[in-house]
Nucleic acid binder design. Structure first.
Lengths: 227, 227
DNA sequence: TTTGACCGAGTTGTCGACAATCTTTGCGCT
DNA sequence: AGCGCAAAGATTGTCGACAACTCGGTCAAA
């Protein structure tokens, strides 16, 4: 982030950590085809290290469900199917609903102000970009990130950001971005922020759960039409 | 293929997997003091393997927050503090609430029957054992396990059983079992099962959330009294 | 006395080589 | 021709050794 050149050498201390981040990024972005088999030696030379650190990185990626490993056979890049994505959305609904509730209770005033500013910026950009799906996805991510952080619950944040979001993003790269609904989502975001600003935990949780439930149903609808 | 003795070679395929399970068990049970520093060589000889597989196991335990690692310094056994436990209970409330909802919708009739049978067995044992806390803990665990499995949501189950429960159990071994409330908890269990049997997802989720919220408040109360 | 650097012991990080296992290929048999 | 088995090849699992780093102690200088 801060060292434009040669940052990969110093930013991450050990080779295992470096490989972990690089490989995770490559998987999430779809640079390595999901479901494909990859050899350890192949990956080791690709990331310029030995098999030892690589295997440590693989064990961590296995914990995050980004690679699947069968002993003595090898590893394959995880492929998030439709059914698994729907499962994750139910988990997301539960966790982010709780996050919104806790955010309403625990967010500082400055955090709330920042959230409102973010929303205002989205309104500007959306007015410009109309229905550009991809941008809204990124903005959507920022919005949810802030609320999760605003819950001030590290365990909750770690589960959502550290585990689920990578898998969801992988799916988005995998299938070419299902139809989303920027303008409708934006309105829902606005009401969620209003509830947080009013410190109404019950309402914030309910609105967030509806928001994510709608997103899930939208995916389900999209799947039915294209199947 | 047939070696009756030395079966520990067969039970878990690789040494890394064996160490992972053994070490996780040792940590959760408190055999290794929480917060203590342990050397890699020391652990390697303890589990009869080399440092390679051990380090792979450590990386997985790190993902599960059972050990903390700082590069070039070493690893220390995780110690779940009071604040972290409360955080986890909020996550649990969200996830198991959703699990109860999904269980009400997706559990098969035989699964529901099994759940009712389990509850009946608890009633018998509880009548005998009165207020024995530890037993209720185990029975409590079984009860929650079944509902989580009954949700038929693998992602949800993995998060709860694969991650959170280990940490909670570690806390139970750490502080000598906070006061629980077997008879009250049992009544709450019963009502949850009734809601599931009636296929009332809304009610099941609400009751489960109240159940876990009460448990959390009980811990908080216990903490205030003993601090 | 205190501060600072230096040095050595011990631990972690990394690597290459060897052993164990799976997969594939090719041969022989029915 | 098809099937089964066996050997070869390739890949993963494991180990021991060396390099890099951290931490504690020691000594010298202000």
């Amino acid at each position: 982030m801060f060292n434009p050149e040669f940052d990969d050498i110093k930013t991450l201390r050990t080779a295992a950590d470096r490989v972990f981040e690089s490989l995770q990024d490559a998987i999430v972005r779809g640079e390595i085809p999901p479901g494909s088999r990859v050899g350890e030696t192949e990956l080791a030379v690709r990331f310029g290290t030995s098999r030892g650190p690589l295997r440590e990185a693989l064990r961590r990626l296995e914990s995050r469900h980004l690679v699947e490993r069968t002993p003595h056979v090898g590893i394959r890049i995880a492929s998030l199917g439709y059914a698994a994505l729907i499962e994750i959305y139910y988990v997301r609904e539960a966790l982010e609903g709780m996050a919104a509730r806790l955010a309403a209770l625990h967010m500082t005033d400055t955090e709330v102000a920042g959230l409102k500013a973010l929303l205002a910026a989205h309104e500007q950009d959306e007015a410009l970009k109309a229905d550009t799906a991809y941008f809204q996805q990124e903005g959507d991510l920022d919005f949810h990130y802030r609320i999760i952080q605003g819950s001030h619950n590290a365990a909750l944040a770690e589960m959502l950001i550290g585990e689920l979001y990578h898998r969801i993003r992988m799916y988005r790269y995998q299938v070419s971005a299902y139809a989303n609904r920027p303008q409708k989502a934006f309105a829902e975001h606005q009401r969620i922020v209003e509830a947080i600003e009013a410190r109404d935990g019950d309402l914030a949780e309910m609105l967030m759960r509806r928001h994510l439930s709608s997103a899930r149903q939208n995916i389900e609808k999209h799947q039915k039409e294209h199947a």
